[in-house]
């Protein structure tokens, strides 16, 4: 049966992709950020997941406002990044696991989460940057697991509630655990933490709130479901709503997790950047 090893969170800021391309790892601006990743590389080398479920939010590449799925699951054999409008390099495709995708879709809909299934899905920086952070050289890293992207809407309100996001993760856990194949799974929750790109409040970052979220997501994620969506925009910034991805990931990890590693740094681009490694308790 499939087994969930743990979850990893990271911000997925586009500028990180450029910094990786330019190998700016020792640059004084970037070093405090990239220093957060070697302990995660070590853990991945030790645990060797077969499948990565990459929970991210599309930013206007895979989906447009004509049809905006609240929750979408990739069901393709491979996923390609595409030009997002600023001419980033196109990479070779990321291999998927369509068989497992369809199992998850079946189980999630049976659990009354109404999913948009995607046999083609262009993946943007929200998916690609974390893959490159965790598996350097991706998609050309032999240890990189097969990927299943899950995207939640944070582009247009109404966005899901934090409670719904956590419950989505709990249903996802049951769906993964009922997969008959013997695969080891790691869950990514990408995006955040606090940032706002638009409006006269652009540049808003909230360290206190980010630190509260990083603490509670380990010990008491249920407490975070008390935060309303409006309050999330107010406290995390208009794009800080990406924290929903962290909640989805957390729900999939079970009641108790061991926090093995964390890093937090302000600013990366306009964002409070948070990285955490949470191992499922035995």
């Amino acid at each position: 049966m499939a087994r969930i090893l743990g979850g990893i969170t990271t911000s997925h800021i586009p500028a990180v992709g450029n910094a990786i391309a330019n190998e700016s790892f020792e640059d004084p601006y970037w070093k405090p950020f990239f220093d957060g990743y070697p302990p995660i590389h070590d853990w991945l080398a030790e645990t060797k997941p077969d499948v990565v479920i990459n929970i991210y939010n599309d930013h206007g590449l895979g989906f447009f406002l004509d049809k905006m799925p609240t929750f979408a699951i990739g069901a393709a054999h491979e996923y390609r990044n595409e030009d997002e409008g600023w001419g980033i390099p196109r990479l070779d495709p990321f291999p998927g696991d369509a068989r497992m995708s369809w199992h998850l879709i079946e189980e999630m809909v049976a659990a009354e989460f109404d999913i948009t299934s995607c046999q083609e899905l262009a993946v943007d920086h929200g998916f690609v940057v974390p893959m490159q952070l965790f598996w350097p050289g991706a998609p050309h890293n032999a240890a990189m697991p097969r990927a299943i992207p899950i995207s939640a809407n944070t582009v247009q309100h109404p966005i899901p509630t934090l409670n719904r996001a956590l419950n989505f993760g709990k249903a996802l856990r049951r769906a993964i655990q009922s997969y008959p194949e013997d695969v080891k799974v790691v869950i990514l929750g990408t995006g955040g933490l606090s940032h706002q790109l638009d409006g006269a409040r652009a540049g808003f970052i909230n360290r206190e709130f980010d630190e509260y979220c990083m603490e509670k997501i380990v010990t008491d994620p249920e407490a975070l479901t008390k935060i309303s969506r409006y309050e999330l925009v107010e406290k995390a910034g208009a794009q800080g709503t990406e924290f929903l991805m962290w909640m989805m990931m957390r729900g999939a990890l079970g009641a108790k997790v061991n926090p093995l590693h964390r890093n937090y740094h302000i600013p990366i681009s306009n964002t409070g950047a948070g990285t955490m490694l949470l191992e499922c308790a035995a």
């Binding site: 206007g60 447009f64 406002l65 004509d66 247009q156 309100h157 109404p158 638009d198 808003f204 208009a238």
Partner: peptide, 24 residues
């Protein structure tokens, strides 16, 4: 300093956003 991008704004801005989406 914050505009919630909701259904009303999504309808108002549809043409502008559709043009920008084409810039992919």
């Amino acid at each position: 300093g914050t505009t919630l991008f909701d259904g009303a704004m999504a309808m108002k801005g549809y043409a502008l956003n559709k043009m920008c989406y084409s810039f992919n």
